[in-house]
Simulated scan of single mutants.
Amino acid sequence: MDDDILDTSDGPQPRPQSLMLAFFGNHVLEEGDRDLCVYSGSIIDVLGRVGVGEQAVRSTLTRMVNRGLLQRQREGRRMYFGLTPQATRILDDGRTRIWQQGAVNDDWDGSWTLLGFSFPDSWKRQRHDLRSRLTWTGFGALYSGLWIAPGNVDVVGVVEELGLTDHVRIFHARADRATDIELMIRDAWDLESVAARYVTFDKRWTSHRGAGSGDDPIGTRLRLVSEWLWTIRTDPRLPARHLPPDWPARPAQETFRCVAEQTAAPALRMARELLETTPSR
């Protein structure tokens, strides 16, 4: 997956595609009707609330249709957009990361998943695509062609989707007692960068705790979810017992869930008032 957030001096600024996916995740997937299509004018209205202009929304919709992430459906003179199976899989994965797994791994069983690959030098795109997907799935580079992730990770689907099954080897193992796990973690993952994302998120959102949903709960929740996905996307959920005692994921997650809870119902009510939808054909 691409990193759909721009870092600026004002903090992380979500790109339109990241916001678009969060929009459909919040108001289509979470509504339980995956076959719902949303009128383009409604999408323009909501993304406009978080600073995305109409032209940027329209070009993002077109790109996402071309990439197989959204489907178009015309109703008279109006155009509606809905999720494709590919986008649904991406959003389901994000929902699992956010609500089921969480950001803190307190129950690691000591196992590791190892993935090895060797590609021809000309396979730059395949190498980039695999590394991007492995990073999102929680892997870090132990060596250039050997990646590792905590726990028993089912990565077969990722490899198959990329068409790389014949070029990848996957193992599940435990570290020998001679291995310094904490040193290995520091070598394979940029802990300072991961921690900095949590600190940035917590600083930006902690003032919203207990402040209610505000005047624009749908926009607030859209920014919240987009920024949280950016925050966790490179966090492999490393075992908590091998991380520094002041690891910032826990307080950041508490802030996220508090603000998410206080905006959920108001954002849903506003969405039902604002969004024009139609069943997918």
Rank of each mutant, 00 (worst) to 15 (best):
A56F: 00
L243N: 00
S280F: 02
P217R: 11
W247Y: 13
D121M: 04
G51M: 06
S213A: 15
T231V: 05
V155M: 09
R125Q: 14
P16S: 15
R78A: 10
D154P: 01
N152Y: 12
N105K: 06
I148P: 01
E160T: 09
E276M: 07
G210S: 05
E273T: 13
R241Q: 02
V225P: 01
A175Q: 09
D7V: 09
M79R: 12
R174K: 14
P248F: 04
T200M: 08
V104A: 07
V159R: 05
F256H: 02
Q73G: 05
A103N: 09
L29P: 02
R269S: 09
V199W: 06
D215S: 15
V158D: 12
I232F: 02
H27T: 04
R223S: 11
G140T: 00
G145D: 09
D129S: 14
G48F: 06
F171P: 01
D107S: 07
D107K: 04
G53F: 05
L6P: 01
I218L: 11
P244A: 05
L164G: 07
R241V: 02
R77P: 00
N105Q: 14
V50S: 11
P217L: 13
V199K: 12
V156P: 00
Y39T: 04
L36M: 05
R257P: 00
V28N: 07
P279V: 08
A271S: 15
P16C: 10
D180V: 04
F139D: 06
L142S: 10
D45R: 13
R169M: 06
M20N: 03
G110W: 06
V259S: 09
L222Q: 15
D92G: 05
S111F: 02
Y39A: 14
D33R: 14
T88V: 12
F81E: 13
S111R: 13
Q73P: 04
D33L: 10
R78G: 08
G41A: 02
A260F: 14
V52A: 08
D92N: 10
Q55G: 02
D166N: 15
Q17W: 09
G32V: 10
G48L: 10
P217G: 12
F171R: 09
A22W: 03
C37S: 06
W136D: 11
T234P: 00
G214S: 08
Q55M: 06
M270E: 15
S207A: 11
L164D: 09
L164C: 08
I185W: 01
R49L: 10
T234S: 11
P239H: 00
E261K: 10
D45Q: 14
R67C: 04
R131T: 07
R63T: 13
P14G: 07
I44K: 15
G48T: 11
W136C: 03
A265T: 14
W230K: 04
H167M: 12
R95T: 05
G68P: 12
W123S: 06
V104R: 05
M270I: 08
H208F: 11
D35T: 11
S18P: 01
M184F: 08
P14S: 10
G68I: 13
L36C: 02
D107L: 04
N26A: 13
V153A: 00
